[in-house]
Design a protein around this nucleic acid. Structure first.
Lengths: 268, 268
DNA sequence: TCAATAGTGTCTTTGAGACAGTATACC
DNA sequence: GGTATACTGTCTCAAAGACACTATTGA
């Protein structure tokens, strides 16, 4: 990265450089943290303690510390602050960049561009309100395909800024990611059964899957899960044999993918 | 999330708000414009006329105009400036957000976050150098899987900032997008033959495809292409019958997808 | 005339999904 | 016992890929 053609020129330029000469744009990260609580998909929301949108619900997030941290770092920091997780527990959370949102009028204060992140987490303890949030709560996401395509957002709450749009995009991304990655396992404990894994797919996709075919499919994809040799202590809550226990395999991509039951989209 | 949480009135709060109170982060958009020239995949690069990295090659881009334009708007503006395209021609270009890059040290001047965009364009006229670029040129992208995974980037040139990384991510995205969207058609004229479409896939994926199977597959995906009823004036340059002419259909997603020949990835 | 190519037919293999069936667990 | 469930077997259908073949063009 440091093969700069004329160094003396460059050094002089940098010394004279005034960062404040640029019109200000502020940069935030906002995080869509998804988890399953009692089998239902939940998203972490905070109640804003300060204007704008004071009292509104919003995605957790905050300003990027200029000159100090990268985007992924800032997202990880905000995630830790808002969930109160130890760095050990955080290592089991999947965090990826979703996209950036920068319409000039999205924040009434000034031009604020938000880099949105998407996180998949196993069942976490109740969040503690941190910093600029009055409180933070897990909020169930509306049922099948409540992805905010109408004027109601996926939580039933009215979200600040353009966060309803970000949440809808996040749910789309999450549904797609389950198809071709093994990330469904990040919603579960390190050891899980195949029926538990199926409930993750069913809840996020919003449709029931065929148990037998799902079982065989998961076992047939190389590296998706690996057996522990153990068997669950108890059968299902309503009867049935005890399921075998698996852990996540070493695959990063599912091949062949686990496609959603035919959604007749594609045309429009 | 801000400095004065004790104001009760939102309007008063906004009146007293000073955007300059925040540490400065600058925001740029950079665009990976891909096109096919004489059957080869090319990317638009500019030679930097000003420090830092003066004289280096870089992706076209520039600062987002604070308070004036959104991210997509800024990317479209930069694209038009750097390619010299009319707004009519620009309408045939596919432009999508790729991701944001914000390591604090990626720009020596200050903390500059770049929102990268990816564009697919049909064969365009030679670019004219605009703004802060000494010149702008189409540059062939290295052959099959030269995606910058090593220490050489995909063009053979040394790129400024982290642009080699952005380019590599863009090529990955482009290769994936051809699988499940009909965007390969955006590299061609409005009317095209199936063998021409095949060369797009072959060049971007870096592998030869089976002509017969490709032909049947494209016709079998609903909404991918639609017939014009016309036939090409001439056969292939090395003989063969004249191909039929198609235009893009109304599908936004290919279903079933056109998957790349088995790349044994997924595990690592 | 030769070589290359467009387009179609057909066969094999793989995978998805429907369905059935058995064993095992909870109530 | 009754019922729900884990898991396996089997069948059918769709799709991918290999291969063959014909017809048509440029050189």
């Amino acid at each position: 990265m440091d093969a700069q053609p004329d160094r003396t020129d460059e050094a002089a330029f940098l010394a004279a450089y005034d960062p404040r000469a640029f019109p200000a744009i502020a940069l935030t990260v906002d995080i869509v943290v998804l988890t399953l609580r009692e089998g239902r998909l939940n998203v972490l929301l905070v109640e804003r303690a300060a204007p704008p949108f004071r009292g509104c619900w919003a995605l957790p997030g905050g300003f990027v510390k200029a000159g100090e941290e990268g985007l992924d770092e800032a997202a990880a920091r905000e995630l830790a602050e808002e969930t109160g997780l130890s760095s050990g527990a955080l290592r089991r959370v999947h965090l990826e960049q979703l996209g950036s949102y920068g319409a000039p009028e999205r924040d009434p204060r000034m031009h604020v561009v938000s880099v949105a992140y998407l996180a998949f987490a196993p069942d976490l303890p109740d969040p503690r309100a941190g910093g600029d949030a009055a409180r933070a709560v897990w909020t169930p996401v509306a049922g099948p395909h409540g992805g905010g395509t109408g004027d109601r957002d996926a939580t039933g709450r009215e979200l600040a800024f353009d966060h309803a749009r970000i949440l809808a995009d996040a749910l789309d991304r999450a549904r797609a990611k389950l198809e071709y990655t093994p990330l469904a396992t990040t919603f579960l404990a390190p050891e899980f059964t195949i029926p538990e894994l199926r409930t993750v797919y069913e809840e996020i996709w919003g449709e029931k899957l065929h148990p037998g075919n799902f079982h065989r499919k998961v076992l047939s994809v190389p590296g998706f899960v690996e057996s522990t040799g153990e068997t669950a202590e108890r059968g299902g809550s309503r009867g049935g044999p005890r399921a075998r226990i698996y852990r996540a395999g070493d695959a990063r991509l599912l091949h062949p993918a686990l496609l959603r039951p035919d959604r007749e989209e594609g045309v429009r």
